[in-house]
């Protein structure tokens, strides 16, 4: 309850900040959509030269990409800690956060909330609906619930790995440049994982399970016969990785000594 009231207060603050720089908000949305547009354009160009990609048709690959956009948008809204080392460790803002009663990670998430990214999720749903309509997907009554469950699981995987990587800042005082890795691995998960070799498939399933962020859950809606089992693991993998990520974060906070500034 306490956390929820905090969310409300932080959102109010966010809106006030945003309204002062209105044009920035639209610029951010526009450039975000342009980036997504390029990725979709890439898929369209690729399919001008081949009818299938690893056995998947154009509409199916677009559908997978649309699904990916949904957890991706929510993740970007929640976990916007890209400048964590500079702002919180080097400049010492972490000390301020730690003196307050709410959990430090919750505060960080709320301070850096970026609801503009949710627009990407909305577009993702539209993309899924259009592509799904073209394929003629059949939906059962429980599919919307599964969709929500998969999305939550996917965001938790994303968040868990991201939080763990960000927590490295507590141990190393120099920026490691490891976070952009996250951003680049996304390049893999937007497409059917069966086009990759065994090593990459293994990594994306078990080590950095990003295949559960896009492909596995999306494949469930396209081909239930083959992909139900992997898709249903999404929430479990999400819970495990989020738990691990937060545990590592908490361990890092205990080790944190401040930059001494």
């Amino acid at each position: 309850m306490y956390a929820l009231s905090l969310v409300g207060e932080y959102l109010k603050n966010y809106l006030k900040r945003r309204l002062t720089y209105r044009s920035d908000f639209w610029v951010e949305i526009a450039s975000d959509l342009m980036f997504q547009g390029v990725n979709l354009f890439f898929i369209l160009v690729v399919f001008m030269h081949t009818p299938f990609l690893g056995g998947w048709s154009q509409d199916e690959v677009v559908f997978i990409y649309g699904f990916f956009m949904v957890p991706n948008g929510i993740f970007n809204c929640l976990f916007n800690l890209w400048g964590f080392t500079e702002r919180y460790i080097v400049k010492g803002e972490m000390d301020r956060v730690l003196t307050r009663p709410a959990h430090n990670l919750l505060q960080l998430v709320l301070e850096n909330l970026d609801p503009a990214s949710l627009f990407g999720s909305v577009v993702g749903i539209v993309v899924m609906a259009v592509a799904g309509g073209k394929i003629g997907l059949e939906w059962t009554w429980y599919d919307p619930f599964l969709f929500v469950l998969f999305t939550v699981g996917a965001v938790m995987i994303y968040g868990g790995v991201y939080v763990a990587l960000t927590a490295i800042s507590f141990f190393s005082d120099a920026p490691t440049g490891i976070l952009p890795l996250m951003w680049n691995i996304q390049n893999y998960v937007r497409y059917p994982v069966n086009i990759y070799n065994k090593a990459i498939r293994f990594t994306l399933t078990f080590v950095l399970p990003f295949a559960f962020v896009g492909f596995y859950p999306a494949a469930y809606f396209l081909d239930r016969e083959h992909w139900t089992a992997p898709a249903l693991w999404t929430p479990v993998v999400g819970a495990v990785f989020f738990k691990l990520g937060v545990a590592f974060w908490n361990y890092g906070v205990r080790k944190y000594r401040g930059a001494g500034s």
Binding site: T176, P180, I195, N197, I200
Partner: peptide, 25 residues
Amino acid sequence: VNYYSGIVIYAINIGAYYFLWLAVY
């Protein structure tokens, strides 16, 4: 140090597009 992680990032990008184009071909 930043640039060692940079090499990994570029290798990831190259790998992603390599397999993608392999599947396209």
